[in-house]
Design a binder for these strands. Structure first.
Length: 518
RNA sequence: GGCUCCGUAGCCAAGUGGCUAAGGCAGUGGAUUGCAAAUCCACCAUCCCCGGUUCGAAUCCGGGCGGAGCCUCCA
């Protein structure tokens, strides 16, 4: 099955064909760095990181660019409020963003261009647009003339007339048409500015993406991604100015991810709350901050205090990328619970094979993966290939990570079943059976790598007293084992119950007793 | 008001014309266990409502009800 991708431009799934065979260029709209990330900011990066992983696995050479918008009215506003500079705010928030990407395992982005480092590229495009008659200067600003662009509105499927019908027209605006948008904004005294043929000013919102995509990826790119909320006006305008400038198609596939929403509340995470934030009385703001913990509108770093990054990543990928995701603390807890079984399987594997699941290096490409050696256990091997195939079929169908996640659970069940059936945990298992299990675990590693999960061992609940706790537990388990040997179940059950109250669970295995927190 | 999108079990969710409608969480029964835990097996939905197209629809079309996003420089 060939890879199919849903294209917002055509509103259908299309066979995936790149501009240059074997190569993919991807551009994702990144953050405006004026406030620390909330969970909504992680949705796009996690999804498109996964897209890149899958494309690379499928054999493409992929270049992935995410921009940083470090010049913007909101950053200026934040800087004024904090009595500092736009650059200082931008730098601080950008670092917060990078920290969050790192912890989420988003490490496939090749370039993070900053808007302020590409001003000349923007001026070049604006110059060309003015020359070609697509744009006009007006009192230090430069506007794009939407009426000059025949197919303006093709991405969001709206006509200029329709848009104007529903919008209030600002009376003091001297733009030729209210739909026209700023490519360049003349600056007021004291504001950050750059020199330009039209006087000092700063770029409009959309032009930076056109300039940076062109510079780093070329005039025609393969995939342009972003949140659904950016489709209009941002992407529509970006597309209009890029194509008017180059005369070539700007992006082959427009991919829009659904937005994170607060459970039980109207609106997307970080949307309405922030918009009127400044208008709220201080007391109401405090109240809002309290609520935000449960709605996901709080900072991402705060969220990570109560949830593992892997849980968040899994949670985001369990739903199809085009659907809205309902955020709630309960949902995340449920996800964490569903992952425990995987981590128990990894430990079980380690006991059986003596090596860590996380040390397994699986096949890096699809072609490589299909050349697996024979296991001498045809039925098991066939089941593994069939599961892999189901996983890849799901991914080939517009990156259906939700379906793929389901296969991962099936694979877990198969591996657990194999362990039980082959009695790998008791006595001395057959080496070929252990080798087969390793082959199965390798498939699990291969597929989970594509989603960017289970890449490293979970951070231990570690504390300095770990050695002491381990020693004490060994002692307690020894005492309990003696009691059990003597059929003194009153004592052994008391120990187990009391430990349970301390959030320690015991597992009596045939060989020995295991313990774990939680 | 205009433009998009969505409505699948108690909850989350995949599936968009045809085998017994994935999977997770919760629940029930069984195997296993001294009892548990863990694991495995089994059970648990005719797909918001009405009408239409079709040999056949959760899946296509029309209408209704309900929800969401955008039209406001928000990922």
């Amino acid at each position: 099955m060939p890879l199919r991708v849903y294209n917002t431009l055509t509103r259908q799934k299309e066979d995936f064909q790149t501009v240059t065979p074997g190569r993919v260029t991807m551009y994702l709209c990144g953050p405006t760095v004026y406030k620390p990330s909330h969970i909504g900011h992680m949705v796009g990066p996690v999804i498109f990181d996964t897209v890149k992983r899958y494309l690379s696995y499928s054999g493409y050479g992929v270049t992935f660019v995410v921009n940083i918008t470090d010049v913007d009215d909101k950053i200026i506003g934040e800087a004024t409020k904090r009595n500092t500079t736009m650059a200082a705010v931008a730098k601080e928030i950008e670092q917060d963003y990078f920290d969050n990407l790192k912890v989420m395992g988003v490490d496939s982005i090749d370039h993070f261009p900053r808007a302020t480092e590409h001003i000349q590229g923007m001026l070049d495009i604006i110059g060309t647009l003015v020359e070609k008659g697509y744009a006009y200067p007006l009192n230090g600003d430069v506007y794009f003339d939407c009426t000059k662009d025949d197919d303006y509105g093709k991405l969001s499927r709206r006509s200029i007339e329709e848009m104007l019908a529903g919008t209030r027209v600002e009376a003091n605006d001297r733009k030729r048409s209210p739909a026209d948008f700023a490519l360049w904004k003349g600056s007021k005294p004291g504001e950050p500015c750059w020199e330009s043929p039209w006087g000092p000013g700063r770029p409009g919102w959309h032009i930076e993406c056109s300039a940076m995509a062109k510079k780093l990826l070329g005039e025609s790119i393969d995939i342009h991604g972003g949140g659904l909320d950016l489709m209009f006006p941002h992407h529509e305008n970006e597309l209009a100015q890029s194509e008017s400038c180059s005369g070539k198609p700007f992006a082959r596939y427009w991919m829009h991810n659904g937005l994170m929403q607060s459970s039980g509340q109207a609106g997307k995470v970080g949307g309405q709350h922030d918009r009127h934030g400044d208008l709220l009385a201080e007391k109401q703001q405090q109240e809002a901050a309290k609520i935000s913990k449960s709605t996901g509108a709080g900072s991402f770093k705060d969220l990570l205090k109560s949830h593992a990054p892997e849980t968040v990543r899994f949670f985001l990928l369990a739903t199809h990328y085009r659907s809205p995701i309902d955020f709630s603390d309960e949902r995340l807890q449920e996800t964490a619970k569903s992952l425990e079984g995987f981590h128990r399987l990894f430990k079980t594997y380690e006991r059986i094979a003596g090596t860590s699941f996380f040390a397994i290096t699986p096949a890096a490409t699809r072609t490589e993966a299909q050349e697996s050696p024979s296991l001498g256990l045809p039925a098991f091997q066939e089941e593994l290939s069939s599961l892999r195939q189901r996983f890849l079929d799901a991914m080939d169908d517009d990156f259906n990570t939700g379906g793929a996640v389901g296969v991962l659970f099936d694979l877990r069940k198969t591996l657990n079943g194999f362990i039980a059936e082959q009695k790998l945990e008791t006595g001395s298992p057959k080496p070929e059976a252990v080798a087969a299990l390793t082959a199965g675990m390798t498939v699990l590693k291969e597929l989970s790598n594509l989603l960017g999960v289970f890449r490293v061992a979970p951070a231990k609940a570690a504390a300095a007293d770990d050695g002491l706790v381990n020693g004490l537990m060994e002692l307690v388990i020894q005492i309990r084992a003696d009691a059990r040997k003597n059929k003194n179940f009153a004592v052994s059950d008391l120990i187990r119950d009391q430990l349970k109250a301390l959030k320690i669970t015991l597992e009596d295995r045939p060989e020995k007793t295991l313990w774990r927190r939680g």
